[in-house]
């Protein structure tokens, strides 16, 4: 209630404030910054642990896409459900996961969210409504539609969000899922995080339409383009889409234009884009820097406050890695667990 009153006051006092600064309290906005830092430092911590041989396999880092994950998850409750992608660490944190258990999963430990069976590409936290990252491009999109169908049939009032990348918009599953969601008017939000490249192939080379949001028209749903590096813009679109979904008006496609700083995965030699391009995004369009500047401009936080956030995050990451290191590995004798539901 306090939130709503304060937001209303803000709106009356400063109608020109960006959406998020009208909608959310100072405390909420500082928490957003905290989470954005948590995502970035988590990714850096995971990368470092990988380099040092503590994590095996591969991983897909979402550094540079923090505002997109946070903006979309802002209007969601813990009951609302998401499906995520191979580049899903940020979504998981934005939806409320504990970085300790995420690191533990990456380290393959029993304390991890998937007890060491899933790793980076299947990170999930069903208690917070994250139905899981997915190793298959577009694999989670129809699943989110199924979750939305369940919400509608069971009248739970939940909405489902499917995150996917620009690469997924050329998969058949994307088109089949959007069509069904629209035909059945389901409470689902399709969030395309367009970071410009599906692995090495640019959207210009892979996708016939200029904007992926243009494809919404084919499925009779709103298609919204947002600057994915601008938290407030993303949150505004997400709020509108969630409202529409909860009101029973059906799905929305949001195209969140963003950029990944790191390569596609750990095998990427970055030969398909220029150093200048990467540096330009990092220097001029960094989502955390942009958000910090706004927070300072509107008097939500000062330099000391930002430093305190950074320090807090640093400690959470260090604690998470320690927790993961200290956690037990699965026993080989439990190899065949969880394939089928154990019948009592």
């Amino acid at each position: 209630m306090a939130t709503a009153r304060k937001a209303a006051n803000n709106e009356a006092a400063q109608p020109n404030l960006p959406f998020a600064f009208r909608k959310y309290t100072a405390e909420q906005l500082r928490e957003v910054l905290h989470k954005m830092y948590l995502i970035r430092r988590f990714e850096e911590g995971a990368e470092d642990a990988y380099m040092r041989g503590l994590i095996h396999g591969t991983m897909h880092l979402s550094i540079g896409q923090e505002a997109s994950a946070m903006g979309i998850c802002m209007p969601l409750t813990d009951q609302d459900q998401i499906t995520s992608t191979h580049r899903g660490h940020g979504h998981c944190i934005a939806k409320g996961a504990d970085v300790k258990r995420m690191f533990a999963e990456f380290f393959g430990k029993t304390t991890g969210y998937c007890k060491g069976r899933g790793g980076s590409m299947h990170i999930a936290d069903v208690t917070k409504g994250n139905l899981g990252a997915n190793g298959i491009v577009a694999g989670g999109i129809p699943i989110a539609v199924g979750a939305a169908l369940a919400a509608k049939k069971l009248r739970t009032g939940k909405v489902a969000v499917s995150f996917f990348g620009d690469g997924a918009n050329n998969e058949g599953a994307f088109h089949e899922a959007l069509n069904m969601a629209a035909v059945w008017k389901l409470p689902v939000i399709f969030v395309c995080e367009n970071n410009g490249y599906g692995m090495s192939t640019s959207t210009e080379r892979s996708t016939a339409v200029k904007n992926i949001a243009d494809r919404a028209g084919a499925y009779a749903m709103p298609g919204v383009i947002v600057d994915g590096n601008n938290f407030s813009e993303v949150a505004e679109a997400a709020n509108a889409a969630v409202e529409r979904a909860r009101a029973g008006e059906g799905p929305t496609l949001i195209e969140s234009k963003t950029y990944r700083y790191r390569g596609h995965s750990k095998s990427d030699r970055n030969r398909y884009r220029t150093k200048e391009e990467i540096e330009d995004w990092m220097a001029n369009r960094d989502p955390i820097a942009l958000f910090e500047a706004e927070l300072k401009e509107f008097g939500i936080i000062d330099d000391a406050g930002i430093e305190a956030v950074r320090e807090a995050v640093k400690k959470e990451i260090a604690d998470g890695i320690e927790f993961a290191k200290d956690s037990p590995s699965p026993e080989i004798r439990d190899l065949e667990n969880y394939v089928y539901t154990e019948v009592a």
Binding site: L131, P142, A150, M180
Partner: peptide, 16 residues
């Protein structure tokens, strides 16, 4: 078929 099967999987995963 792909989308439909996926919707069924998602619905099963979430209570139906």
């Amino acid at each position: 078929e792909l989308g439909g099967a996926g919707v069924a999987v998602g619905a099963a995963l979430t209570g139906l």
